[in-house]
Computed example of a mutant assay.
Amino acid sequence: MIAPDAKSDLHRYLQNAREALLWKMEGLPEYDVRRPMTPTGTNLLGLVKHVAGVELGYFGETFGRPSAEPLPQLAEGAEPNADMWATADESREDVIGLYRRAWAHADATIEALPLEAAGRVPWWPAERAEVTLHRVLVHVTAETHRHAGHADIVRELVDGTVGLRPSHGNMPPGGPTWWADYLERLERAAREAGDR
């Protein structure tokens, strides 16, 4: 038996991840939200675009509640990874708007269905495709937090900004000297371990 407040708990964790993902773009110029910061092209705006599509798929098609939202990455002939970056013609506002509409669509599904509601993930293997809203809510929450973690690292690489959210930095107190000393200790420990 699932606790009566389990759905609201899961939904709150999903919402926290959504907000963290968007916060990581605050205050950055257009170039910095788009620029690839890893060898595989990970960028802040692309992470948001990707997660918007994830929510629309899992909380839409899976439960027979498809969205009318067009997703260019699903179009015939779309290039691989089209959901992981924004074209120059897709504004930040367009992508954030898409994500907020995906939230609304997902939230409507979450509110309308019980956690035991059955669905089918059409892009999963047949033996795993049958799911419940509970499983999808856990899956999408985990995926969104995973990508929020990517955004943490990308934002730190862009301009050094770190923390969980504006009201809760969750970082040890310390200025530039403390962090430089800390990094030096870590480097020394890594070298010592590598030399063994």
Rank of each mutant, 00 (worst) to 15 (best):
Met1Asp: 07
Met1Arg: 00
Ile2Cys: 08
Ala3Met: 12
Pro4His: 09
Ala6Cys: 12
Ala6Asp: 12
Ser8Thr: 15
Leu10Ile: 10
Arg12Cys: 11
Asn16Asp: 13
Asn16Leu: 14
Arg18Cys: 07
Glu19Ala: 12
Glu19Tyr: 04
Glu26Ser: 12
Gly27Met: 06
Glu30Ala: 14
Asp32Glu: 13
Val33Ser: 03
Arg35Ser: 06
Pro36Ile: 04
Thr40Trp: 14
Thr40Cys: 08
Thr42Phe: 02
Leu45Lys: 13
Gly46Ala: 14
Gly46Tyr: 02
Gly46His: 07
Val48Arg: 03
Val48Trp: 01
Glu55Tyr: 12
Leu56Cys: 07
Phe59Arg: 00
Glu61Pro: 01
Pro66Trp: 00
Leu71Gly: 02
Leu71Gln: 14
Leu74Pro: 02
Glu76Ala: 14
Glu76Asn: 14
Pro80Gln: 06
Pro80Ser: 01
Asp83Phe: 09
Met84Gly: 14
Met84Asp: 15
Trp85Phe: 15
Ala86Lys: 10
Glu90Gln: 15
Ser91Ala: 11
Ser91Asp: 15
Asp94Cys: 06
Val95Lys: 05
Ile96Tyr: 00
Gly97Cys: 03
Gly97Phe: 02
Leu98His: 01
Leu98Thr: 01
Tyr99Arg: 03
Trp103Lys: 08
Ala104Ile: 08
His105Lys: 04
Ala106Gly: 10
Ala106Trp: 01
Ala106Cys: 04
Asp107Gln: 15
Asp107Phe: 07
Ala108Ile: 03
Ala108Val: 03
Thr109Leu: 02
Ile110Lys: 00
Leu113Gly: 15
Pro114Cys: 06
Pro114Gln: 08
Leu115Ala: 09
Leu115Asn: 07
Gly119Cys: 08
Gly119Phe: 05
Pro122Trp: 10
Trp124Asn: 07
Trp124Cys: 03
Arg128Lys: 11
Arg128Val: 09
Ala129Ile: 03
Val131Pro: 00
Thr132Arg: 11
His134Phe: 13
His134Cys: 12
His134Trp: 13
Arg135Tyr: 11
Val136Met: 12
Val136Tyr: 05
Val138His: 09
His139Met: 13
Thr141Lys: 00
Thr144Cys: 08
Thr144Gln: 03
His147Pro: 10
His147Arg: 08
Asp152Pro: 04
Ile153Thr: 04
Val154Tyr: 00
Arg155Thr: 09
Glu156Pro: 00
Val158Thr: 15
Asp159Cys: 05
Gly160Tyr: 04
Gly163Asp: 06
Leu164Thr: 11
Arg165Val: 10
Ser167Cys: 06
His168Arg: 14
Gly169Ala: 03
Met171Gly: 01
Pro173Gly: 00
Gly174Tyr: 06
Trp178Lys: 08
Trp179Leu: 05
Ala180Leu: 01
Asp181Trp: 03
Asp181Cys: 06
Tyr182Phe: 15
Arg185Met: 07
Glu187Gly: 07
Arg188Cys: 05
Arg191Ala: 06
Glu192Asp: 13
Asp195Ser: 15
Arg196Phe: 12
